[in-house]
Amino acid sequence: MELRKEYVGELARLMRQNDKIVILDADLAGAGGTKPLYEEFPDRCIEVGIAEANMTCIAAGLAASGFVPFIHSFVPFVARRALDQIAVSVSYSQQNVRIVGYDPGVHTTSNGGTHMSFEDVATMRAFCNIAVLDIVDGIQLRKALPYIVQHQGPMYIRFVRKQTDVIFDENYVFRFGKADKLRDGKDITIIASGTMTFDALQAANKLEEAGISVDLLSIHTVKPLDEQAVTESARKTGRVLTVENHSIHGGLYGAVTELLSAQLPTLCDAVAVRDKLTQVGNLNDLKRDYGLTADDVFDRATRLLNRR
C-alpha cells in the first residue's frame, strides 16, 4: 500500500481518539494524501497555502497551547525553507511539532533538482532536541505513528509518499530509538536507514551467497541513534558500512562515525551521496548515478572487507 494511505488511515484513527492532533498543509494536501482528513476533521485540518515559514510558526503556536501539530510538505520546503522557524519557534521554543517531509532524497525523481534534498537529516540532527526518523516502509510508518503522537519534543519524519519495497510484516513492533536487526552475522556490519534498507538487504543476500556473513541493522531513528546496537555490532565485525539516501555529510554515516570514532575506532565506509548536485531522473537511474543501488552496497562492502 502507498505510504500516504497508511499514514492518513492511521492518523485518522488516532485523531478520532485524540482531539489534540492537528494537521497543517502548505498546498500539498492533495499530493500528500491528507485531503480526506479535511472532511472528517474540518476544524483540526489547517490549509495555510504556499507559506511554509508561516505554517511552521502557526504549528508552534498550536503546540504552545497543548496541541500536537503535524506539518507537511516535500522535504526541502518543510525542513530547509523554514529552517530558522524550526530553529527558533520549534527547537529553541521546545514545541511538540511533528515536521513531516515527503519524498526524501532520490525519491523526488522527476521533481528533482529544486525539490530534492540530501541535507535534511544532517540539519535536523544538528538541533539538540529534534528526533529524526527515516521511515523504511508503510507498515513501519503505521506502527510508528502512535508513538510519534505521544513523543515529547519536536520530531522530524521523512518518508516516501508512494509505494516502496516492503520489509516488515504485521508482526512488526516499532521501538523508538532502537535498530531493527535483520541479519545476524560476523564478517561485516551494514547499517541502513529508510528505504535503503531494501537495497542493503538485497546486497546482504548476495554477500551471503559469496560466503560473507552480514550483521544487518535497519535504522529508523537516526537521532537518537541506537548506540548500543551499533557499537555491539562494530565490536563483533570490525567493519561498518552505512547505507543512506542522503548526503555523506552529517546523516547516518555522520551519526555512526561520530559515535565509533570516539568509542570504538572502526573501519567504516558509506553508501551515500558524495557532493553531487541534485537532478531529475527516474528512481533507478538516480540511484545508479548517485551510487545508491544494491550493487553499490555489495561493491563497497567487498572493498571494505579487503581493507587493512
Binding site: A53, N54, I58, A60, L62, A63, S93
Partner: peptide, 24 residues
Amino acid sequence: DMTAGSLGQGLSCACGLALADRLK
C-alpha cells in the same frame, strides 16, 4: 507566551495561539 527574537515569526505564532483558542 511565546519565544521571539528572530524577527518576523511572532504574527504566525500568534495565529497558532488564536486558532488554538478557537479550537478549545
